[in-house]
Design a protein around this nucleic acid. Structure first.
Length: 199
DNA sequence: TGCAAACCATAAC
DNA sequence: GTTATGGTTTGCA
């Protein structure tokens, strides 16, 4: 049984679907009710067939904590996402790997489709496809993945939203660096590179 | 700049 | 099996 919770926080709509305390999918939207319909859509069309799900109107304490976490991430706070358990066991191995690497991009930094591909093996377009199908926005920070020329690339929630998220995450870093992930290294760049490019 | 070709895991037939 | 599909990249004119 999958249970879906939704709540509007600071004017933004958030929704999560939980199964056995694990997050199955999450979403957000500036329009009322839209986050909920996206999550329902994911549950029905992008997950293994589940017998039944229900929308729960009054969130449990756990669900509430998860929703608050989503809101905090959305607002640009540095949240430790390892506190949240994501249900990824049904996903293909390569997809899991890419999501994991993406999760390692620190706040205030971005990486590129190509660099993630280099770290995961495979090609940039495959990475783009996985970002496009990300069930865990904004927990898995696919908004921190941009093109190799530091223009935005795409975003399922609109480029305007991608830019707003990145702007709130700006931390004033100046130099690129490497982070270790999944046994390898990933190149990351200050989000300033992207913001300056657009200015 | 702009365009064409190569790239590569998935999902859908 | 096979084909179609991108949130890309790179090379070259």
């Amino acid at each position: 049984m999958i249970q879906i919770y939704t709540e509007t926080l600071n004017g933004t709509d958030f929704a999560v679907a939980l199964c056995e305390q694990q997050i199955v999918t999450s979403s957000f939207d500036v329009n009322p009710q839209r986050a909920l319909s996206k999550v329902i859509d994911n549950v029905m069309h992008k997950l293994p067939p589940s017998i039944v799900f229900q929308v729960v109107l009054t969130p449990t304490a756990e669900a509430k904590a998860a929703l608050n976490m989503l809101a905090a991430i959305y607002s640009g706070k540095d949240i430790d996402i390892t506190q949240l358990t994501l249900a990824t066991s049904h996903l293909p191995a390569y997809t899991k790997k890419v999501l994991k690497i993406t999760s390692a991009i620190p706040i205030g930094y971005v990486s590129t489709y190509g660099d993630i591909a280099k770290s995961a093996g495979g090609g940039p377009r495959a990475v783009g496809n996985i970002m496009a199908g990300n069930l865990f926005a904004p927990i898995v920070p696919c908004h921190r993945v941009v093109k190799s020329d530091f223009t935005l690339g795409g975003y399922g929630f609109g480029l305007k939203t991608k830019l707003e998220l990145l702007s709130r995450e700006r931390r004033g870093f100046e130099a690129e660096k490497q982070v270790s992930v999944a046994g390898g290294m990933l190149e990351v760049f200050p989000v300033e590179y992207v913001l300056r490019k657009l200015a």
